[in-house]
């Protein structure tokens, strides 16, 4: 028997009895950041591949949502800070060792870039002669010439944005459930999958819908494989990692959320439905899309929660 008590009494808020410093703000931001990253990634990639006429929803309609999504995410992040008025200190330092610092700088760059990206598509987004201010049209047409460079930058930053959230959590070696390098790729793939599912839902042409359903199907399979690797990696790790993964392998209430919510509703069922859709059976796109989004949200919320609960016992 091993029993450990803090006999002097310690009731530090959000630390005792179990660490719970991050509430809904952080997982919500992780989810929104992943989707925005996915949207901006596809937009830039398909533009560089010259597919703007074939996939217009992805290349210039979906990016309209990206700055709004990032904005809501940033608001959540700001609300989470306990020393809010000092948030600008993020931008007086560049800390290579801190993924949160890269994230702050990435957001600083990708948010204005995404706005410029949208503006450069004003001719496609607003058909007809809308040049109320001729000088504005001149500026925007000048911007259009830089679209290739912008697309490369946006694609790179989108990958960093989609991935750093996972790396941020995996960098906490004190929390065994987060301390796995699979988390970066897992969050990236999951964000890309949510963005693909949303694009498939909003696309107007069958060609674009078909393409994004294919992309999403592939990503969901990769995500499932990454989750299997995650569990295997934990099980062959230290006792702290085994204890951490046991929270989702049986025994606790988190098991049903993980296997039922994230794996079954978020991955397995959409994989089946999307495969059926691709083999010409009629499946309303909204159903797999909602399932993927639900799985995405649950993934972020559950991981943020479980990481905080898991710990080393000494």
């Amino acid at each position: 028997m091993i029993e450990q008590v803090i006999s002097s009494g310690r009731h530090n808020e959000y630390i005792d009895p179990v660490l719970h410093v991050w509430h809904w703000h952080i997982p919500l931001y992780l989810f929104l950041g992943g989707i925005a990253a996915g949207i901006l990634f596809y937009s830039a990639l398909l533009f560089l591949r010259g597919r703007e006429e074939k996939y217009p929803v992805s290349v210039y309609w979906m990016p309209l949502a990206a700055p709004v999504i990032i904005g809501v995410g940033l608001l959540a992040l700001l609300l989470d800070l306990s020393h809010k008025l000092y948030f600008w200190q993020l931008y007086t330092n560049i800390r290579w060792e801190s993924p949160m610092s890269w994230g702050a700088w990435t957001l600083m760059l990708i948010t204005p870039l995404s706005l410029a990206w949208i503006a450069s598509f004003y001719r496609e987004l607003l058909p007809g002669n809308i040049t109320v201010w001729p000088w504005l049209a001149t500026v925007l047409d000048e911007l259009r010439k830089w679209r290739k460079a912008m697309a490369w930058a946006q694609m790179t930053l989108a990958v960093i944005l989609g991935m750093y959230t996972g790396i941020l959590l995996s960098a906490f070696n004190a929390r065994p459930f987060w301390n796995t390098s699979i988390l970066g790729p897992l969050f990236l793939v999951s964000g890309l999958s949510a963005a693909a599912a949303l694009t498939a839902y909003f696309s107007k042409s069958e060609t674009e819908r078909h393409f994004f359903t294919q992309v999403d199907l592939g990503l969901l399979v990769i995500e499932l494989v990454l989750i299997i690797h995650l569990v295997m990696g934990f099980l062959s790790g230290s006792q702290a990692h085994i204890d951490a993964v046991n929270m989702i392998l049986g025994g606790s209430g988190y098991t049903i959320t993980f296997w039922g919510g994230i794996v079954l509703i978020g991955l397995v069922l959409p994989i089946i439905l999307e495969a059926m859709h691709l083999s010409k059976r009629h499946i309303p796109v909204i159903i797999p899309t909602l399932m993927v989004i639900t799985g995405n949200i649950l993934l972020r919320f559950l991981f943020v929660e479980l990481g905080q609960i898991s710990r080393y016992v000494y």
Partner: peptide, 16 residues
């Protein structure tokens, strides 16, 4: 005066 209250350090401390 440099702390923004992001709580990353709290989560990173194995000793709470």
């Amino acid at each position: 005066d440099e702390c923004i209250g992001c709580k990353a350090c709290i989560a990173s401390c194995p000793y709470d």
